[in-house]
Simulated scan of single mutants.
Amino acid sequence: MTLHALVQYLLYKRKAKGRHGTHSPFVYAFIEDGIQKIKAKSLKELLRTYFTDKKLVFVEEQQATRQVKNLFDSTRPDTIIAIKDIHATQEATDEWDKLSSSSRVTLSVDLYQYGLLFFDPAFKQKQHFIVKYPA
C-alpha cells in the first residue's frame, strides 16, 4: 500500500457512513439490503447480485480516464460504472474526483475499493456518499 493509499484509507474510515448516516433512501437500501445482507465473496460479486436490474460496467483504475469519459456519452439511466482502486494513487483519486463531479453523474458512492457512478435522472439532486464497506 502506498503512502497516498494509506492516507486515503484513513480519511475514508473517518468520513464513511453506515445506513444511519445516509439521507438517501436508495443508498440506505443499498447498505441495508446489499452490503449488510448479501454474503458475497467480493465487492464485485455483491454489486452484481444487488444491482440485477442495472447495467454494470466495471473499469480497472488504469483505464478509468479514457474509458469512463467514452462511456459517458453512451450511458443510460440504468447504467452504473464501477471504477476499481479509486484511491490507489494521487492520479486515480484526482480522476475519481473529476468523474464524480461530472454533470452527467447524478449519484456517486465511494466504497474505497470501488467508486460507483450513477446516471439516473430520477435522482433529482446530485449527491455523493462515502459508505462503509468491510475492507
Rank of each mutant, 00 (worst) to 15 (best):
E45H: 15
G21V: 01
F30M: 05
R48K: 15
S42L: 06
Y50H: 08
L43W: 08
G21T: 02
K55H: 09
F30R: 02
F30A: 08
S42V: 11
K54Y: 11
D53R: 08
R48W: 05
D33F: 13
A29P: 00
I38K: 09
S24C: 07
S42W: 09
F26R: 00
T22A: 04
I38N: 12
Q36R: 14
K44F: 12
Q36I: 08
P25E: 03
K54W: 07
D53P: 00
Y28R: 12
V27P: 01
H23D: 12
H20Q: 11
I35L: 07
L43M: 15
D53N: 09
V27T: 05
K55T: 06
T52L: 02
F30C: 04
F26Q: 01
F51M: 04
Q36F: 02
A40M: 13
H23G: 12
D33G: 11
Y28F: 13
F30S: 02
K55Q: 10
I31H: 03
F30T: 05
H20N: 10
P25R: 07
T49D: 07
Y50L: 01
T49H: 00
I31L: 05
G21L: 04
F51P: 03
F26P: 02
K37A: 12
L43F: 08
D33N: 15
D33H: 15
E45A: 14
Y50D: 06
H23Y: 12
G34S: 10
F30I: 02
H20C: 08
Q36Y: 11
F51Y: 09
Q36W: 11
I38A: 10
F51I: 06
T49P: 00
H20K: 13
K41D: 14
G21F: 01
S24W: 05
K41Q: 14
S42N: 12
A29W: 00
K37M: 09
A29N: 11
H23R: 10
L43H: 10
P25A: 04
T22I: 14
F26D: 04
T49E: 14
F51T: 00
R48H: 13
A40Y: 13
F30Y: 13
L43S: 13
L47D: 05
V27G: 01
D33K: 15
L46T: 06
E45I: 14
Y28K: 12
S24A: 07
S42M: 12
D53E: 07
G21W: 01
L47H: 08
G34W: 09
L46M: 10
F26E: 03
L43K: 13
K54L: 00
I31G: 03
F51L: 02
H23S: 07
L46H: 06
L43C: 15
Y28D: 03
I35G: 06
S42A: 10
K55S: 05
I35C: 08
P25S: 05
L43P: 10
A29V: 00
L46I: 06
S42F: 12
